[in-house]
Amino acid sequence: MGAVRLGLNLEFARYENGSFDWAMDRAADIGYKYVEPMVHWGRELLSEAGYFHSRSMLDDPLILKEAAESRDLQISSLSSHAPLAKPDIAVDYLKQSIRYAAECGAPMIQVDDGPVPTWTTEEENYGLMRYTLQEAAYVAERRGIAIAIETHGPYTATPAALDLLLKLVNSPALTVNLDTGNSFLSENDPHEWLENIVANVTHVHAKDISLADAAKYRGKIRGMLGCTCGEGVIDWERIVRTLAAADHDVVLSVECGSLDAATKSYHYLSEVIQRVGAPALQPSAIAKESS
């Protein structure tokens, strides 16, 4: 059986005007053992001033590692999204984020498929994405870092589309970060989708969509921050049961829009995991598995 443990994507801090350290403190205070920080290239004014949670990859990656360890946290992944069909942006950025992940102790990075250039054909986009993923995979394979492709954009909007994207490059580094909320918004059944591909899912964005947002946005957008887990459309018992039956460990990384939702989601999902009987994931299990 796979082990399921709760993590927190630090994007909740965006609506709280919270810094990286503030977000890390709140994650630890709530009780999470895993966090998913965002990293960026260069310097960004709001982050430097403490109003945004992302960290610059110009900083020493050991700062990020020590920030987690000092709070008894593990890094489940780095949020390293870059447009795959824009290799002039994505290739060097992803290579850097992979090297950064290896040094800070993250077993994987998150990527997605959009936005795409305005002037290219679909065939050209597949060629561009293949180039980007292959260049990133060369770097990831040598370091034992997974590249988890998130269900987010036009080329990951359906099971068939995601499968085609994954087959562009033959690499063990390519895995899946299934985002339950995004998958639902793209008019899929995320529970069934997860059940069909769980063998290749290394990370899950635990995102719920409220009934009001589901009625308003489903089929119109492919991504948004979620509501409190348990207050929306996702059947979390089914999700946890699927992950617990897998032969590998996965972190459910809560992605929501507020500190209150992050807190309530932790308590709700903790109870679901305990009720379903999923074994607790030891803090070092993911890092060992990826080494």
Rank of each mutant, 00 (worst) to 15 (best):
Q110Y: 06
D21W: 15
A82Y: 12
C104H: 06
M108E: 09
S284A: 02
V35T: 07
S284D: 07
I149N: 01
K264H: 13
V204Q: 01
D113C: 11
G127P: 07
A199V: 07
A49I: 13
K216Q: 14
V111Y: 03
T120Q: 10
C104S: 05
S77I: 10
S54C: 10
D92T: 15
V276F: 01
A68I: 01
D208M: 03
L128I: 10
T156K: 05
V116E: 06
A140V: 09
P61T: 08
A68P: 00
S171Q: 03
G2M: 10
Y266R: 02
A102C: 06
L94T: 11
G257C: 12
M38D: 10
G181L: 04
N17V: 14
A214S: 15
Q74C: 11
M129Q: 02
I149H: 04
P159M: 10
P172L: 08
S284N: 00
K207R: 10
G105I: 01
S19R: 10
M57K: 02
R143C: 06
D213L: 12
Y217T: 10
L46M: 14
R143W: 08
P37L: 06
D247W: 04
L46T: 15
S210W: 12
S76P: 00
P117R: 05
M24W: 10
N17Y: 15
G232S: 08
M57I: 15
H191I: 14
M24E: 04
L64C: 08
I273D: 06
Y155N: 00
P159T: 08
T175K: 13
S210Y: 11
L62E: 14
L178V: 09
H53K: 05
Q134D: 11
A82K: 07
R14T: 15
A90L: 09
D189Y: 05
H267D: 00
K216P: 02
D92L: 13
S70E: 14
H81P: 05
N170K: 14
D235W: 01
A214G: 15
P61N: 05
V169E: 02
T175S: 09
R143I: 10
K264W: 14
R222H: 14
A90H: 03
M1T: 14
Y93T: 13
L164Q: 12
L178T: 02
S76Y: 07
T180C: 12
V272F: 05
L243E: 04
E237D: 12
M1P: 12
V169L: 07
D113H: 09
A67K: 13
A67D: 11
D29Y: 13
N17C: 12
D208H: 03
E69N: 03
A101V: 07
G105D: 03
K220P: 03
V91F: 07
T263M: 02
S80D: 07
Y217M: 11
S284Q: 00
S80M: 09
D72F: 09
T228P: 06
S210T: 15
G277K: 09
H267R: 12
V91S: 12
